[in-house]
Design a protein around this nucleic acid. Sequence first.
DNA 1: CGCTACCCTTAAGCACCCCTTAAGAAGAAA
DNA 2: TTTCTTCTTAAGGGGTGCTTAAGGGTAGCG
Lengths: 217, 217
Amino acid sequence: MYLLLVEDDLNLGRALHKLLQRQYRVHWLRTLAAARSHMEQGNYDLLLLDLGLPDGDGVDWLKSLRASGCQIPVLILSARDRLDDRVRGLDTGADDYLVKPFRPDELLARIRVLLPAGGATQSRLTAGSLSFATDTHQVYLNDEEINLPPKEHQLLAVLMQSIDKPVSRERLNQQLYGLGDGVDSNTLEVHIHGLRKLLGKDRIETVRGYGYRLVPL
Amino acid sequence: MYLLLVEDDLNLGRALHKLLQRQYRVHWLRTLAAARSHMEQGNYDLLLLDLGLPDGDGVDWLKSLRASGCQIPVLILSARDRLDDRVRGLDTGADDYLVKPFRPDELLARIRVLLPAGGATQSRLTAGSLSFATDTHQVYLNDEEINLPPKEHQLLAVLMQSIDKPVSRERLNQQLYGLGDGVDSNTLEVHIHGLRKLLGKDRIETVRGYGYRLVPL
DNA sequence: CGCTACCCTTAAGCACCCCTTAAGAAGAAA
DNA sequence: TTTCTTCTTAAGGGGTGCTTAAGGGTAGCG
């Protein structure tokens, strides 16, 4: 469970880092620029965002994050208490808003709320009209629940965690059969075919010589 | 990762441009006026600023930049070595100060310190406008994702790890076919030809009698 | 216990991509 | 020029991935 903490105040940052490290893996950054580049690569489960940063406004970044399709839960930490600040934060896609100063246990409680199921992974992944709930094993296509066979579900689970990024055949086979050398036949292709039949042909692209890629539609 | 290099000396500028292009995307400008207009629009991650410019003093510009709230990391390159010059540079908001002449690797080291998140990602290689993500198997040319056939992708993977350095035909053939004696024909040349067609003719130079070399553009 | 429904694996045929081959042109060295 | 290396192109064949259907396993249920 990875958290990204963006907070420029050294004392508060250090304290929060220490607090959160007891329960989660935390990256603490002090600038928007650093946060941007970390978000691009890291798969974080929650973003803790201070608004008064030295190199820009956190709300603007959050807006662009949401615009680019990023669905990570965001908790805003801010000293700004005016009502319209709060509204603006939540309107741009923040999931919660905490005004400094706050009690540590209140922060932890709100984090628990935002972290789905207290642990496993992000519980609801969305790619275009496709939505995937990791905890309840439900899959929605165009707001209708559909039923996937187990293997197809496992494949989709991996693909949904790397939306728009190719996933190697090796990785997918591993997901289906574990590390021990699995089957020697073309099961992967058959199951991919099954997925395509259920989700629509264009939703899974094949990357020749490497693997497959889920594209949002 | 975008750098803005402001340096009026043609020889030094060209050399720095070439050096930095191996790892970053660089815009090289020779006047303060050009730098001003570029800074207004471009989102740069680092500013490399020479002080002895033809149309004004870099320190004055830096001061006004900081006054207007710009927080971009700035590294000053200068021949002025007097202590008060150095102090003046740092006081007006520069993050570091390098006295000419300097060693290339020292410059690169200081850039890495100043760049958010320690600079380039290891899993993402960049040569000019070409970017290569080893983990997700993605290749970007001018910020657009492109699709490479498997063999071409394998070749590019090797070339990207030795940007600007020639790679032997032997090494490249080995990458394609393993150590066991591969093919006896001119497949390597054909695939290089394919790569050139996709990436641009000038991006891969041939080193006669030895191999090929990827140059940043 | 047997029936049914579901789904996983296998395998075979097919389509299409891309890899190889080869041969002539172009270019560099001698 | 001659000679050697590299470039370019096009055709063929092989391999990769797609599709389909049959066979067998498994779980739920009567």
